[in-house]
């Protein structure tokens, strides 16, 4: 079974789950098949999608980043405090936040690569550090009052039928497009796959392993910071407790999207499908007025199904 074929199977199965969910939901609820629902799906969870794309790159390279939720939380309160309490221009606040996020990611990547520490532990330290710093900035919610925010919230692209794509959705879609091109058409993207497939082989082939790994974590940090900014755009406020345990959802989305946690196989298209499945499940529980805890359980069950599927189809049992 070659890799191209197995990748197709996993993307196709993710896509068919999404399709099935949409068909069933559309038949069960009136008005589910509407552009409003689709627009909502994107705008409500855009921050999650952005961080899941960053997470995809990290997982493809054979690592993991547990710090994304905390970095998002930190960014929201950091940006909100700068804008509201210190009257900094939003643009400057965003730039600073993005630089901090990227630098933070690069630092973790550096520790992971240079000292050969497990990514799991270094990013765990990152998780605690960023969350603590978020509370250090300000321990309570901060409302953002800024003309730029008001102006930006009115920016939207109409898609017909009265629905429109909000700015948060547009950010998500651009990140997706950039990631898709980077992964598939650049040398950097190919290096990520190579390192995830086998780091020692990549090293022997003379690929820049260290640079690529540090860059991957830096990109994930950048994506998390961007996700945090997107969250402030959506909520018009910042809170140090925002996005707690979001890394779990992001990892779940990546795995449902068919990217193997062992690295080297997968892509952002699958992640996007996983993101849509995630959003659809929450929309369904909303439409059926079920409690959101059922959605969490459903996502766990789906995660299990996909892992088993990967085990059975994609990665044939390794010889013991």
């Amino acid at each position: 079974m070659n890799q191209r074929w197995s990748k197709l199977v996993s993307t196709a199965s993710t896509a068919s789950v999404l399709l099935l969910l949409w068909i069933v939901a559309g038949l069960a609820f009136d008005n589910f098949w509407s552009p409003f629902v689709v627009a909502d799906l994107f705008s409500e969870n855009a921050f999650l999608g952005i961080s899941a794309i960053g997470m995809t790159l990290v997982i493809l390279s054979g690592g993991i980043d547990l710090s994304v939720g905390s970095v998002i939380g930190f960014t929201t309160i950091f940006v909100a405090t700068l804008i509201t309490d210190h009257s900094v221009s939003p643009w400057l606040a965003w730039l600073t936040a993005l630089l901090i996020g990227t630098g933070f990611g690069a630092m973790m990547g550096f520790l992971i690569h240079v000292f050969e520490l497990p990514a799991f532990l270094v990013t765990l330290a990152g998780l605690f550090f960023a969350r603590g710093m978020a509370f250090f900035v300000k321990p309570e919610s901060v409302q953002i009052r800024s003309e730029t925010y008001e102006w930006l919230s009115s920016c939207a692209v109409p898609t017909g039928g009265g629905a429109e794509l909000e700015l948060t959705t547009l950010i998500l879609l651009s990140v997706f497009a950039i990631a898709l091109v980077t992964l598939n058409l650049t040398r950097f993207g190919r290096n990520i796959f190579a390192i995830g497939g086998s780091q020692s082989s990549a090293q022997l082939m003379g690929l820049p392993v260290g640079r690529t790994k540090v860059l991957v974590y830096a990109i994930s940090g950048f994506c998390s910071a961007l996700a945090g900014i997107t969250m402030t755009l959506y909520m018009d406020s910042g809170n140090p407790i925002n996005a707690t345990a979001l890394e779990l959802d992001a990892i779940a989305i990546v795995v449902i999207g068919g990217t193997l946690l062992s690295g080297g196989v997968g892509g952002v298209t699958g992640t996007m499908l996983g993101f849509l499945i995630y959003g659809t499940i929450y929309q369904i529980t909303y439409f059926a007025s079920l409690s959101s805890s059922l959605a969490t359980i459903a996502i766990g069950a789906l995660l299990l199904t996909f892992i088993m599927l990967q085990r059975l189809i994609v990665a044939p049992a390794e010889a013991e």
Binding site: I251, S292, L294, T296, I297, I299, L303, I307
Partner: peptide, 27 residues
């Protein structure tokens, strides 16, 4: 039995377990 990597296998219950607890408690 399924030979799933421990990190991934236990991630499932980590994600859904809290949902199960919330559901039992009625949120």
């Amino acid at each position: 039995s399924l030979k799933i990597e421990p990190v991934i296998a236990t991630l499932v219950l980590m994600v859904s377990g809290r949902g199960i607890a919330k559901y039992i408690a009625g949120e």
